[in-house]
Every structure is written in structure tokens, then in C-alpha cells.
Computed example of a mutant assay.
Amino acid sequence: MDIAKCLTVIDLLSAREFPAEDSRSDLGTAGPGYSMAVLETSRGMSAAEPWVRERAAADMHALREAIAQRLNDRWGEQPPWGQLTVRLRMGRGEAIPEPWASLSLHTDELDVWRAEEAGRWVALGVADRDGTDEIRLLATVTEIDPP
């Protein structure tokens, strides 16, 4: 997916109502207070050699950075949000709300913006923590404050 299409998907997620229950949609998954879409997925990286997978992950991160630059132009540049602390808090038994809990398990870092006009948060991250799974670029829109 090119940058313009990714931004269009993020705009669609931002404009949609959130479902009352966890569900799948034409763009991805959603639940009470959030919607998540896979903007891009690697092909064949779940079984790739480590160096091939590393190169594909770098390409996915480059796409994330290009999209993040466009979103920085809209909402201002924000420091990246590391996910290790959230994972540690979950490991100690703290309840972390969705979509933040799932994002922390799949990504090491997120770009996060507050879209004030919509009253929502927008998060962008690369799901590449599981070496047996495809690499995915995730966009999430939520009204739930980050933990």
C-alpha cells in the first residue's frame, strides 16, 4: 500500500463509529472505543531467513516513518512511545485496556498523536516481535487514553 492509501485508511478509521463489541471490519478489527487496520503485511517473512526478515522489517519501519512524517505535519511531531514499560506492567498483573494491551504485545514502539478535532488518539507501529509471524504495519484509532 502506498503512503496516500495508508493515510486514507487512517482517515477512514478516524471518521468511523466504534462498535459496541469486538468485531472484524473491512479494514481490520475493532472493539469498544477503538479500530485497528493492517496497512501493510510482509509476504513469506514468517519462514524467512533472519537476515531476509530483518531487511523486510527495516523496509516496513521506513514506510512507517514516511507515514509518520505526514501525520507529524498534521498533529505535530511526538516522541516515540516505547512499549516495554506497558509489557512490564501487564506482566505484574496490571490491567491495560485495549487496544494498548495488544499493541504492546506486537510492537516495540509506536508513533502516537492526539487528533484533537476528532477527540481520538492515532497510533502507528510495526508488528515484528514474533519471528514466526508476518511483519505488519498497524494503524489504530482510539478514544481510550494511552496507559
Results as ranks from 00 to 15, higher is better:
110 L>N: 03
101 A>V: 03
79 P>V: 06
75 W>V: 07
130 D>I: 08
72 N>L: 01
75 W>T: 07
98 E>K: 10
89 R>G: 00
22 D>H: 12
2 D>P: 09
10 I>A: 00
94 E>W: 06
120 R>Y: 03
76 G>N: 09
81 W>K: 04
57 A>H: 13
62 A>S: 12
143 E>S: 14
134 E>Q: 15
89 R>D: 01
32 P>W: 00
136 R>V: 05
17 E>S: 15
139 A>L: 04
7 L>Q: 08
72 N>E: 13
117 E>R: 15
92 R>N: 12
65 E>H: 13
19 P>L: 09
56 A>D: 09
7 L>I: 02
145 D>Q: 04
21 E>A: 15
115 A>M: 07
65 E>V: 00
99 P>N: 09
95 A>S: 06
38 V>Q: 04
101 A>P: 05
114 R>T: 05
58 A>Y: 06
92 R>Y: 08
76 G>H: 12
28 G>D: 10
131 G>T: 13
14 S>W: 01
2 D>I: 04
95 A>T: 11
134 E>A: 07
137 L>D: 00
37 A>G: 01
85 T>A: 15
60 M>G: 03
134 E>D: 15
7 L>V: 03
141 V>K: 01
125 G>M: 06
28 G>K: 06
122 V>L: 10
98 E>A: 12
19 P>R: 07
143 E>M: 12
73 D>K: 15
30 A>R: 08
133 D>S: 15
57 A>P: 05
29 T>K: 13
129 R>E: 13
49 E>G: 13
36 M>G: 00
79 P>R: 08
121 W>F: 11
131 G>N: 13
105 L>Y: 10
102 S>E: 05
52 V>L: 15
20 A>L: 14
60 M>Y: 04
94 E>S: 02
145 D>R: 02
113 W>M: 07
15 A>P: 10
144 I>K: 07
119 G>V: 02
16 R>E: 10
116 E>Q: 09
76 G>D: 09
58 A>D: 06
34 Y>L: 01
29 T>V: 11
95 A>V: 10
78 Q>C: 09
131 G>H: 14
